[in-house]
């Protein structure tokens, strides 16, 4: 089964947020699934969603905030158009992971966790993607890539940024007609 990688996110809307929260509120221990669903919908968990989640799930805002800030995957700010994760685990370190990580931060000009000034790329570190016999490993927009050296990463990035620009241009022309 191949996971579906979708990059399109909805703009913030309290109604959509409430609908998303409601769809997951009925299960046991609903908070993490709810926060995942919000991030899937909007690309991040907007701070304006916190009181809505708290009220729906009968939790305090502090509890929701506490969970939101505990988990590295959950973001409180919108991500860049392209998301890159570089594995920093030992297996990738053993085949040049340190050098790849340095290349990623220096070529993009951001630290891990940061987004480039033009909003095009968000760079994250991740500790193990389970591709440990084919490292160094990265993901670009959720897709896993193995045996990635610095030039491969550059190519993956430029392809992805270009694809993204084409998608956006297509959207714009569609709006005009």
């Amino acid at each position: 089964m191949l996971s579906d990688v979708s990059q399109r996110h909805a703009p913030w809307s309290p109604d959509v947020a409430l609908e998303t929260i409601g769809a997951h509120a009925g299960q046991r221990g609903p908070l993490l699934p709810v926060l995942h669903a919000l991030q899937e919908t909007f690309g991040y968990v907007d701070p304006r969603a916190v009181p809505l989640v708290a009220k729906t799930l009968n939790l305090s805002r502090a509890e929701v905030f506490g969970v939101l800030t505990f988990y590295p995957d959950l973001r409180s700010t919108p991500p860049g158009k392209v998301r890159v994760q570089v594995c920093r685990g030992e297996a990738c370190q053993s085949v040049g992971g340190h050098a790849l990580a340095r290349h990623a931060t220096s070529s993009l000009g951001v630290d891990f966790g940061g987004t480039t000034a033009d909003g095009s790329v968000t760079l994250d570190e991740v500790f193990c993607l389970g591709n440990c016999a084919l490292g160094p490993t990265v993901t670009v927009d959720g897709r896993l890539h193995g045996r990635v050296l610095a030039p491969d990463l550059d190519l993956l990035l430029s392809n992805s940024v270009n694809n993204n620009a084409e998608v956006n241009n297509a959207d714009v022309s569609g709006d005009l007609t």
Partner: peptide, 27 residues
């Protein structure tokens, strides 16, 4: 049977932290 997805915290591989996470809490 139901799938729950973690959120990038290594500590949730520790069994009690995983249970906390399943309950919707900090791990």
């Amino acid at each position: 049977l139901e799938i729950r997805v973690g959120a990038g915290a290594y500590i949730c591989g520790e069994e009690t932290a995983m249970l906390e996470s399943l309950e919707g809490k900090r791990g």
